[in-house]
Amino acid sequence: MISVGIDAGSATTKAVLVKDDSSIVHSIHPTAFDFVSAAEKAYEDVLRVAGIERKDVDSVYSTGYGRNNINFANKAISEITAHAMGVYHFYSEVKGIIDIGGQDCKVIAVNDGKVTDFLMNDKCAAGTGKFLEYTARALEVPIEELGNLALASESPAGITSMCTVFAESEVISLRAKGFSKEDIAAGLVESIARRVAVMARQVGLKENVAFVGGVAKNTGIKAALEKELGISLHMVPEPQITGALGAALYGNS
C-alpha cells in the first residue's frame, strides 16, 4: 500500500509518501503563486526519493489551504483532521494539538487520533506566524532569532495589542522609549502565547499536548506557551509535515 499526502499550505507545500505504514519520505517546497505546480513538484520529489512510479501510488489525499485545487488528488480533507492523524502517528497518547502556522492558529482536541473539538483564530493575524513576521520586522531581527532573543530577556516589555498592525506600531514606540530588543522580543512572544493559551483553554487542553506548525520550531514561543499553560509541550520529529502525513495516512485507512 503506497499513499501520498499533499499539504498545500499558504507558504509551503509539503508532500509525504507512506509505504506500508512504515517507511516515510517527505519533501517541502515553497508554495509561491501557483498551488498546483508546487504540489506537482513536491509530489515528484517524494516519488523520486522513494524510487516509486506514479502508477504504483494507491491514493493521493490533499489537505491545506489549496486542498481543493490539487487536481491529481483523489480526495481533499481538512488540515484539522490531517494534523490529528499525523501527530497521532508520532505520538499516540496525544490529547491536544496546538498548530501555529503562517496564516492561522488551530487548537485541536484529539482522542485516538480523531478530532473531538477544535478552534481556529478568527479572520485575523493575531496569534499566527504573520504576527511574528511583522513584529520581528519592526524590531529589525530575523524571525528565527526572535525566540532566542526573548529567552535572554529578564523583564519583558508589555505588548498590549493583539492586532498585528497595532502591535507593529507598539514595537516602534517601545523602541523609541529605549526598551532593549530582548525585552521587546519577549513581550511579543508572551503576547502570542497568551492569545493561543486562551484558545487552548477554551477547548480544554490539559495534558499530552503536541505543538506543531512552522512556529513550533521557535524555542522562545514554545517556552512562553509552556509557561502560560503550565504544561510541557510535546514536540513531534517533523512538525511541518504532520498535515501531509495525516492526509497520506487518511488515504491509507
Binding site: Y65, I77, S78, K114, V115, T116, D117, F118, M120, K123
Partner: peptide, 17 residues
C-alpha cells in the same frame, strides 16, 4: 465573502469530525 474559505475549512473539519 472574505471569510468563505476559512469557514469552509471549519465546516470541512466539523463534518469530518
Amino acid at each position: 465573502d472574505s471569510d468563505v474559505e476559512q469557514i469552509g475549512l471549519r465546516v470541512d473539519a466539523f463534518l469530518e469530525m
